[in-house]
Design a protein around this nucleic acid. Structure first.
Length: 220
DNA sequence: AACCAGGACGTGA
DNA sequence: TCACGTCATGGT
């Protein structure tokens, strides 16, 4: 078995299925895991919105912004495209970069409406201002269940520590490593990225990175 | 009180 | 191409 699959199995054994992408629960006032696939159109759009709001931002803060949007009935492409930017930015304030993200959400909403319910291509997503490679892949993988591997800062940090990628590798280089060495199964890509985030939160947040990380001995 | 958080874009060289 | 600055709230 390849190293990447060994690492995947080790994390899955250690932490269990992560149930991504989390969806905000109005009752609990926070996001809940365990909804493995978007149940309806509203879930799809919420995942896209969350993917934009979580850019360089702790999920905890994104939950607050998503809840503000949801309780006011604004978590909808037509609502967001119709609302005033200053009102929108006020609602998503807890997620940081609120002026930029308000603009991004409006532009994405227009784009989303134009899709008429069909899935966007990666190139189409990347052509939207505010959607970079990670956000595009997150949307494709978690909202549309397409097999695109999501690379984030944690992925680079962990796999550089393990010596499997260079510290300065590009997004595309790292994504290629995973997609060249794993079966293109969206369920595995889904779980793998979620496990990376969980593992990184446990062992790769404060320096020195990698304290208590057990993955190096898994590779063998 | 720095540092980090499930990044992306604009700029100048 | 690419290094660097900017965007911003909130938790540790």
């Amino acid at each position: 078995m390849g190293s990447l699959m060994k690492i995947y199995n080790a994390m899955l054994w250690a932490y269990g299925p992560q149930g991504w992408w989390p969806i905000v629960s109005l009752e609990k006032g926070k996001s809940e895991y365990g909804v493995d696939a978007p149940r309806d159109e509203a879930d799809v759009f919420e995942i896209c919105t969350g993917a934009i709001l979580t850019q360089n931002t702790a999920w905890k803060n994104v939950e607050k912004a998503l809840l503000n949007l949801k309780v006011s009935g604004s978590l909808d492409p037509k609502k967001i495209s119709g609302i005033r930017v200053d009102k929108l930015s006020a609602m998503i304030r807890p997620a940081g970069y609120f002026n930029q993200k308000a603009k991004k959400l409006k532009l994405f909403s227009e784009f989303y409406i134009g899709l008429n319910g069909k899935a966007p291509s990666r190139e189409e997503l990347l052509s939207v201002w505010g959607i970079g490679p990670e956000t595009a892949d997150s949307i494709l993988l978690y909202a549309y269940r397409k097999p695109f591997f999501v690379v984030d800062a944690y992925t680079r940090r962990i796999f550089a520590y393990l010596g499997l990628v260079k510290e300065d590798s590009s997004y595309d280089d790292i994504q290629k490593l995973f997609m060249d060495n794993l079966k293109h199964d969206e369920r595995v890509f889904n779980e793998y990225h979620a496990l990376i985030v969980d593992h990184a939160k446990r062992h790769y947040q404060k320096r020195p990175y990698g304290q208590g990380c057990f993955l190096r001995k898994v590779i063998g």
